[in-house]
Write a protein that binds this DNA or RNA. Structure first.
Lengths: 247, 247
DNA sequence: TCTGGCTATCTTGCATACAAGACAGAAAGC
DNA sequence: GCTTTCTGTCTTGTATGCAAGATAGCCAGA
């Protein structure tokens, strides 16, 4: 039992480790995830690493370039827009569907916002990045709907990758304020307002991105030669072939 | 190129074949999907079948019972409720986020509704099931956001599995009417109304389910012995161990 | 010096072999 | 007859081996 526990855990733990690495901004977009490397790291064979990679691929977090390797996705500008749009849709829909905020829920969010303040005070940027994303996941958890939680977790992971690529400076205080306002509205029972604030908040963050910054150093050349864009439009399954590494 | 095309296609085609089989109600919940069977069917080795199964598992469509086999999920009553809730959240959020309905979009939906009418007239229930689900996917496609489309496709697949388990009779005419009303509102540019109608429509369909019908013939015994419920609550990743087959 | 091609090496793609659990059905004991 | 145990078969779990593409670096030739 100990053994099967361990091996079952190992299986999903590769996946979970990578996702949480991204959520806490420890893994950058474009990072190469070699099957052999990970296999050695986790003490398993390539087979299981591959399984984890395939699962992450369907979650839109990782991408394989045939016979070159697995890479953490580098969302294009179009991807970034789509991810923010999807988040607005899901989060606004979620908040509008809520009817009450339980006491525990209120406490959980309150504690979370305190953590945000602490991390800001400590200047712990990695932790801050994690918390800023986690706020939205926590809201999803309040709904008790695991499907929505999963969807938002994956979208949040991608959001963090996006901000690592396109966010020049980190307006933590602003985001924190946005979170506080959403929480206020929720506590007041005004979920429609909370939904509106959530959309505004996501808009704010999106506006703070510099989507002209290119993760692909060839994109200007490409466009001046009027070649087709690197990514086909927003296909979450089919990702672009990576033509460059990030370092 | 022909070759690589073919092999690349094969890879995703197992996945796509199964999903479309479910969407058109040709594959029932609880169906066993043996690795060897599928491997023979598609003319590939178990390895690739397994990859497809893993992907389908992360999409919540398939489930593995250790050393027993892969099965199409049989959503529990709780799962069913969660799926409908998630759909209400996403679809309402989606419709509210829309600003215009293009001419092509209008034509596409109109054509779709005609197809629904035709299928009703022809009494083609399988096709009707497919179309009833596809309507919602088409709406998502109008948004041009592939992330939302993927999410709704998977949720729709699960919805169809749910209706195969819990829907005693099929109120096609009623659903069709609901779709028409949503389309009317959209064409009138009233997306808020469309969102409301969409929620109502999903409520209607959910109400038409008999969630006391048991996919698990042991559940009454289980509850009379006051054992813990078969499924932990709504964990989309961790599915229940199947204790029975459907035939 | 620059260009083109060759080769060595590293990567994933895929199939296969073997391990080990689950189950059904027979056989044995009561 | 009923229960229990055992064993053969079928399933997935996992590692490994080999094929084949991609890449980088070297070397030769202009």
């Amino acid at each position: 039992m100990q053994d099967s526990q361990t091996s079952e855990t190992t299986q999903k733990s590769i996946e979970a480790t990578i996702v949480s690495g991204i959520l806490s901004a420890k893994i950058r977009p474009g990072t190469r995830l070699g099957e052999n490397q990970l296999a050695a790291l986790f003490g398993v064979s390539r087979t299981r690493v591959r399984e984890a990679m395939m699962r992450l691929e369907t979650r839109g977090i990782v991408h394989v370039s045939p016979r070159r390797g697995w890479f953490v996705v580098e969302p294009s500008a179009e991807d970034a827009i789509a991810v923010y749009e999807a988040r607005r849709i899901v989060e606004a829909g979620l908040l509008r569907s809520m009817r009450t905020l339980t006491d525990e829920g209120s406490k959980a969010l309150d504690a979370h916002l305190t953590e945000e303040r602490n991390a800001m005070a400590a200047g712990d940027r990695q932790r801050l990045t994690y918390l800023m994303g986690d706020f939205h996941i926590r809201i999803a958890e309040l709904s008790g709907n695991a499907i929505i939680v999963d969807i938002l977790r994956d979208l949040t992971a991608r959001t963090i990758l996006i901000s690592m690529l396109y966010q020049s400076e980190f307006h933590a205080a602003q985001s924190h304020k946005g979170h506080c306002r959403i929480f206020e509205a929720m506590r007041a029972g005004d979920f429609v307002r909370a939904a509106e604030l959530s959309v505004e908040h996501l808009d704010d963050v999106e506006m703070g991105l510099d989507l002209t910054a290119r993760p692909d150093p060839l994109s200007d050349l490409r466009s001046s030669l009027s070649l087709p864009p690197q990514n086909r439009i927003l296909t979450s399954q089919t990702q672009k072939p990576q033509l460059q590494r990030s370092n």
